[in-house]
């Protein structure tokens, strides 16, 4: 499979990380190709979020190797990740509630004018532009994000991830707090980003949604990788079995 599609966009090789005595991620390897969505499945505490935070720079792995387009890279902090065009939408959204949408979208990457001063007007204009595309109903540009609804907050977090020409997108339960309509919006967005050849890691609890949105699914249990499967080759029951029992479906176990 790897040969047919050339070099993977991301390779996570033998990643391990422990907190105190607990091995949160134990020797896990997953890869991701351009234009592909890989779902990460597992119980709470299975290690999905922890694994992905090694890639986004929130955690530093103890052991293992990360390759981007075949090149080994070091990611020590979120800034490193961003410099490799890795963007993350966290489950908590990671928004500063007291700031407005534009300030959050550009947080850490503010537009500045010739004097080095933060250019709020330019940032608001850019925010209005991208929001017009992502969520045309969004109007509260001057309110702190604490005054926004769950869906609006989500669209700010998504806008932040896609604005800066991301090549690798990590989405940690992007639809957990959303209504059906907004969930549909996220699904359409994922499809569009796929067409633009981004690679997406999608962490989700909803197996049905993973079957719908993802190309492959990696299942984790107790910090270890149960297996990676093509979603078209497995049923929802197979996936459930992998999550709960930690067993690879028999027809795939070679």
């Amino acid at each position: 499979m790897a040969d047919a599609r050339g070099t993977p966009l991301v390779e996570l090789n033998n990643i391990s990380i422990a907190f105190g005595g607990i091995q949160a991620v134990d020797d896990v390897s997953v890869d991701l190709y351009p234009g592909e969505v890989v779902g990460l499945l597992g119980h709470n505490g299975a290690g999905k979020s922890t694994l992905i935070k090694c890639l986004s720079g929130a955690y530093r792995m103890d052991k293992g190797e990360i390759r981007i387009k075949g090149q080994p890279v070091t990611i020590n902090n979120p800034r490193d990740a961003r410099s490799h065009h890795i963007e993350t939408i966290y489950q908590t959204l990671a928004l500063a509630d007291n700031l407005d949408a534009a300030a959050n979208l550009f947080l850490g990457r503010e537009l500045v004018n010739a004097l080095g001063m933060v250019d709020d007007a330019a940032m608001e204009a850019e925010t209005r532009r991208i929001m017009g595309r992502l969520n045309p109903n969004f109007k509260k540009f001057n309110a702190p994000v604490s005054a926004l609804s769950g869906g609006q907050r989500q669209s700010v977090a998504i806008a932040r991830a896609v604005y800066f020409n991301a090549q690798i997108l990590i989405m940690d339960e992007p639809t957990a707090a959303l209504g059906p309509q907004e969930t549909q919006m996220v699904a359409e967005l994922i499809d569009e980003l796929k067409r633009q050849n981004l690679g997406i890691f999608l962490i989700d609890h909803d197996i049905h949604q993973v079957k719908q949105l993802c190309d492959r699914a990696a299942v984790m249990k107790n910090g270890q990788l149960v297996g990676v499967v093509n979603v078209d080759e497995v049923s929802e029951d197979d996936l459930l079995g992998m999550i709960i029992l930690g067993k690879t479906p028999e027809h795939l176990a070679a």
């Binding site: 986004s56 979120p78 993350t88 990671a94 500063a96 509630d97």
Partner: peptide, 10 residues
């Protein structure tokens, strides 16, 4: 406003 978000924003 949100120390974690600030940290994650680099």
């Amino acid at each position: 406003g949100n120390p974690d978000a600030a940290e994650l924003s680099g």
